[in-house]
């Protein structure tokens, strides 16, 4: 018996950390600034799990999510880490 890694759950899509050097590429591709990206809380269980792998994450980092879609196969979605969400 052990504590559970949420990233292994079938309903949780793949979460990947975007390296700081590649963030501008993502923003350029989407033609947005960071404020316009969908958000994810720093306290989100999936972010906490990523922290176990990559060490402490700061607000402002971008997370790439590879979603499974019933129409498009797989596609990428991006969220930016924020301190608090409403």
């Amino acid at each position: 018996m052990s504590k559970f890694n949420v990233l292994e759950h079938e309903i949780v899509p793949e979460h990947h950390l975007v390296p700081v050097e590649e963030e501008y590429k993502v923003l350029k591709m989407l033609n947005v600034t960071k404020e316009n990206l969908p958000r994810i809380s720093i306290n989100d269980p999936a972010v906490k799990a990523l922290e176990e792998i990559h060490g402490k994450l700061e607000p402002g980092r971008i997370i790439k999510i590879i979603r499974k879609s019933p129409t498009a196969g797989y596609y990428e979605y991006y969220r930016v880490i924020v301190k608090s969400v409403i």
Binding site: S2, K3, N5, E8, E14, A49, L50, E52, I53
Partner: peptide, 12 residues
């Protein structure tokens, strides 16, 4: 203490 091996999921 529960220990979990955290791994990124990358199936695709």
């Amino acid at each position: 203490e529960f220990t979990v091996e955290y791994k990124e999921k990358s199936e695709y």
